[in-house]
Design a protein around this nucleic acid. Structure first.
Length: 406
RNA sequence: GGGUCGGUGGGCGAGCGGUCAAAACCACCAGACUGUAAAUCUGGCGCCGUAAUGGCUACGGAGGUUCGAAUCCUCCCCGGCCCA
């Protein structure tokens, strides 16, 4: 049996840093101190495999459990993914084919592998216990829970009270998810704070199956780069786990200052006292917030890539945005027939794919956003002759160098 | 099945016969500034095009009324709510 770490310091970090709730805290503590590997459950939704830093917050917590020697079991929600979204959004989900779910799950694990040791993880497919579920099983499961309890969930009660539809299926979802805990005999479940209710349902149901109720731990939902809404692909305020170093660095730099601290706490291992000092200096205006953010950006890029890439990304960022210099790596614009036949700057922007329509190209030029060989062009009728080596700049971030190559 | 309210630009949502390519807000793009791709400020944000108060296509779909429709009428499709 593997060794399990039980030191006070390690447990304190585990239970406090980047944690919203630990339920039931004292029980969980006792179990962690007992020195036996616990069965840690983490459910994965395989319908959306595009992961961002918000997910990474959870992965880091999962890794902490791994490092202490606990056994992590990932449940691929391949079955519940099909019965619809529980959170009341009306758009019904598309049914995914088994192959799609499989592919998504693999992508998910690959990305997760940047943080968690996936080799040590047990992967459990929900279908393996739900495919043989009978109507009788479903009814029995439902019998263990009450509508009253379901309505405890804020989302349900507000909608119900406000005369809005609450589908019966939505009641089923937490029950099925709770049953997962029964199926794998979870000791502890981990997830975002939005999962609180579902985890609680599992606690309620487990004793009826002869199990101890699971404990659980929730982490905060990371705020996105806009500084207000939670990080999500649909708000386009996310930093993807798979983003390239330069992109990742830049996106972190575009964070609102107010959320920096949250990022440090949930996405880095920098000890709290060090953070306190850093932010103290910043508030006393002895330290530039920009540099604090740069530190954060370096930390994050290092985690998902490596230290060298982080430094390179930083150097690049300084060049481009602080010094206004050209990037070191400029995309190539093919010197093709379309570009050759361009007679004005507007034609050229279209041919070079730097503008979607002539109207847009015009706008960019008129607003002073276009430079050719570092000379600003403001007249839309400026004649243009294609030549290799020309450098286009559109806005602050889009560049292109004309080249004979394919 | 009956009733009722609605379907408008990337989002939300105003407009309810001409002055509407369509308010406001958000998102997005550009410029200025800066401590950064932050904040703030300015401009832009259907397409084609200009010296332009120019042209074209658009307000769920198809027809119609009108000199003129996102706005009125008919039918159809889709959604919310209420009653059965």
């Amino acid at each position: 049996m593997a060794m399990v770490e039980t030191s006070e310091a390690a447990l304190a970090t585990l239970l406090n840093r980047g944690v919203v709730d630990a339920v039931v805290r004292t029980d969980l503590e006792r179990m962690l101190q007992a020195g036996k590997p616990l069965r840690i459950k983490f459910g994965v939704d395989p319908s959306r495999p595009d992961l961002h830093l918000g997910h990474a917050v959870g992965f880091r917590k999962i890794r902490q459990f791994q490092e202490l020697g606990h056994h992590v079991i990932i449940i691929i929600g391949d079955w519940t993914a099909r019965i619809g979204d529980p959170s009341g959004r009306s758009d019904t989900r598309q049914m995914l084919s088994a192959a799609e779910v499989h592919a998504n799950a693999q992508t998910y694990l690959d990305q997760m592998g940047k943080i968690v040791d996936v080799d040590k993880i047990e992967v459990a497919w929900q279908t393996s216990w739900f495919e043989d579920f009978t109507l009788e099983d479903v009814v029995r499961l439902c019998a263990k829970y009450t509508v009253n309890r379901m309505l405890d969930r804020a989302d349900f009660s507000t909608r119900y009270g406000g005369g809005q539809a609450v589908s019966v299926v939505e009641f089923l979802y937490p029950l099925l998810q709770a049953y997962d805990s029964v199926a794998i005999e979870a000791d502890v479940e981990l997830g975002g704070t939005d999962q609180y209710f579902n985890f609680q349902v599992a606690r309620d149901i487990m004793p009826a199956h002869g199990l101890q109720p699971q404990q659980f731990l929730t982490w905060p939902l990371l705020v996105g780069t806009d500084g207000t809404r939670k990080m999500s692909k649909s708000y386009d305020n996310y930093v993807a786990i798979t983003d390239e170093p330069n992109d990742m660095y830049g996106k972190v730099m575009s964070l609102s200052d107010e959320v920096m601290r949250d990022y440090f706490e949930t996405l880095t291992d920098i000890p709290a006292p060090v953070l306190d000092e850093m932010f103290g200096e910043m508030e006393a205006e002895r330290r530039n917030p920009r540099d604090v953010k740069a530190h954060l950006a370096r930390e994050i890029v290092t985690q998902f890539h490596d230290e060298a890439s982080a430094h390179a990304a930083e150097a690049e960022f300084v060049r481009m945005f602080r010094q206004g210099a050209l990037p070191s790596d400029i995309p190539i614009i093919a010197l093709d027939d379309a570009l050759r036949s361009a007679n004005t700057i507007v034609d050229a922007l279209i041919a070079a794919n730097l503008a979607k329509s002539r109207s847009e190209a015009r706008r960019l030029v008129q607003q002073g956003g276009v430079r050719l060989d570092n000379t600003r062009i403001t007249d839309t009728n400026t004649p243009y002759t294609a030549q290799p080596g020309q450098i286009f700049q559109v806005g602050k971030r889009r560049f292109g160098e004309v080249s004979e190559g394919s």
